[in-house]
Every structure is written in C-alpha cells, then in structure tokens.
C-alpha cells in the first residue's frame, strides 16, 4: 500500500465533495422544490428555509391538481404505469432480439456482418424528428398508432442497437474455446449459447439492459407524437403541469423525483453487475 499523508487525504475529500456538489446540486434542488409550494419556490431571493409540504406528492398520487384558479385531473400515476410498461416491454423485446443477434455477430463473422451491425447502430444517428413523420404515416396505415404494441416497437428501436453493440463486445470477450469445450462435451450450439455464453456475459447483458431502460424511460419525442393522452409516459405527462394558470413547479419537481426513482433504484440494485460488467476481466476464461 502506498502511504498517503493526512493532507492528501483531506484534499482528496474536498475534491470529491466539490464534484458531488456540482453534479448532485440540480437533483438536490429539485428534491427541495418538490416539498415546496409554488409561492416559496418562486420567492426572491431563493432560500433553503421553508415549511415542507407533501401537497405536491399528494396531488400526483391522487390525480387531483389544485391550482389557485381551478381543480383539474392529472393522469400522473397512469403515465408512470405507461412508462414502466413501455420501457420494460421495449427492453425485454430488445434483449430477446438483441442478445442472440449480438452472439451471432460476435461468433459468426461473415463478409457483411460488420456492415449489418453498423446499419443497426446507425438507427441511433438519425434525428428522431426526421423519422417521426414517415413513422406516423406508416403507423396510421398499419393501425399501430396509439397502441402499446406500436409504441413498444418504436421504443425497441432505441434499445436494440445499444444492446446489440454492448453485448456483442462481451460475447467477443468470452474465450471461444470455453464454448467449444462445452460443445464437444455433448451439447448443441444452442445449449452452449444458453448455458455458457449468456451466463458468462450476464453482467454485460444486465448493464446493457439497464442502459437501454434508462434511454427508453427518458424518451420524449416518439411518445409525444405517436401516443394519445392515456398511453403517454411520464416524460410527456409532465407537460400537463404547464397549465393555463401557470407552471406548477412544485408538482413538476415531485413528478421528476417520482419518475427518476425507478431508474435510480434499478441502478443501485444493479450496481454490482454494472461494476462487474464494466470491468470485463470477470468473464475471461
């Protein structure tokens, strides 16, 4: 072990604290906002001292938004449900399609495999707005617009390239001979894929899945255009807080806090896999 002087330890602590403050401040501020009324939020100068209120959360959970002018219904909890459904559905679909595809790209190199893989990745380069208009027209023709199925299909386009490219790297890192050893031990390639390759790439698949989930969860534009109110996710649902009588900052903040909670919990839970997954070495035979 290298010796570190107390001063060095202290300076390091300060540096880390500064970094944390810098990155966490917006989130911290939003959390504070979510416990305030619009009046305390908007006062000048802003202050950390206020009387906390749970009104914002209550309004979101009960679905009744009380403004100074009127009381209106909001569908926040429904939006949350939609977000979960769309993101989970899209990630699952992308995993089912993407993991075998990634394996095939990693193991069976043909003349065109690199081109095909790149084409799939290039979906990510296209600006969503450019894709939206044709997509809307197709969806109307196919009767897919404003269906969960159609939305998951579109969301899955966001997840698939990510999963494909990340997981492919993990498969490439597994020694082929480990798989061959299993195959000559009396197993088909599919058994080998299921019992050897997938478990060994497990941390990587988890990491890719989580990342894809975050991307899907945060998507805004596709859902805005392709879904009607009752199928919209939180990202779009939050628009409801911009009301005729003003912007409901407190509720927006509470909505943000609630909507980042699932991803945050997932990330904390999957942290072990993420670290394992990102430090590759674990899967080398």
């Amino acid at each position: 072990m290298l010796e570190t002087s107390p001063l060095e330890t202290f300076l390091r602590g300060v540096a880390i604290l500064l970094v944390i403050l810098f990155f966490m401040f917006p989130i911290f501020w939003i959390v504070l906002m979510s416990f305030q009324t619009n009046e305390t939020i908007l006062r000048i100068p802003p202050s950390f001292i206020f009387e906390p209120t749970f009104d914002n959360y209550r309004a979101l959970i009960t679905g009744k938004l009380e403004t100074n002018a009127a009381s209106l219904d909001i569908a926040f909890m429904r939006n949350m449900g939609n977000s979960v459904l769309l993101s989970v559905g899209a990630v699952l679909l992308a995993l089912i399609l993407g993991v075998p595809a990634a394996y095939s790209f990693a193991r069976h190199k043909t003349r065109f495999s690199e081109d095909i893989a790149f084409t799939l990745l290039s979906f990510r380069f296209a600006p969503p707005l450019l894709v939206l208009l044709p997509l809307t027209i197709y969806f109307q023709k196919l009767g897919l617009s404003d269906t969960y199925f159609g939305l998951i299909w579109v969301y899955q386009l966001i997840c698939l390239p990510l999963i494909l490219w990340i997981v492919r790297g993990y498969f490439e890192d597994i020694s082929e001979d480990v798989e061959y050893a299993y195959r000559i031990g009396g197993h088909s390639w599919f058994e080998t894929f299921r019992k050897i390759a997938v478990p060994l790439a497990g941390p990587g698949i988890a990491a890719a899945g989580l990342l894809a989930f975050i991307f899907a969860w945060n998507n805004f534009i596709f859902a805005l255009v392709l879904a009607s109110a009752d199928k919209q996710p939180v990202t779009v649902g939050a628009l409801a807080f911009v009301t005729a009588s003003g912007i409901q900052y407190g509720q927006i903040a509470a909505a943000i806090v609630l909507s980042i909670t699932p991803t945050l919990l997932l990330a904390v839970y999957a942290q072990k896999y993420l670290v394992e997954g990102l430090s590759l070495g674990a899967v080398k035979g």
Binding site: S175, D177, V178, Y180, A181, Y182, R183, I184, G186, H187, S188, W189, I196, P199, L200, V283, G285
Partner: peptide, 20 residues
Amino acid sequence: LPPVRRNVAMAFEGYSLYPP
C-alpha cells in the same frame, strides 16, 4: 458434422475451463 456429433474429447492448449 457439428462438434457434438463427432464424439471426440479434447484438452485445450489454453485449458478453457468454464469459470462458473
């Protein structure tokens, strides 16, 4: 034939044990 049907055993140069 695919490897599984050749009924051949092999000890690999790089050992290739299955880590889990």
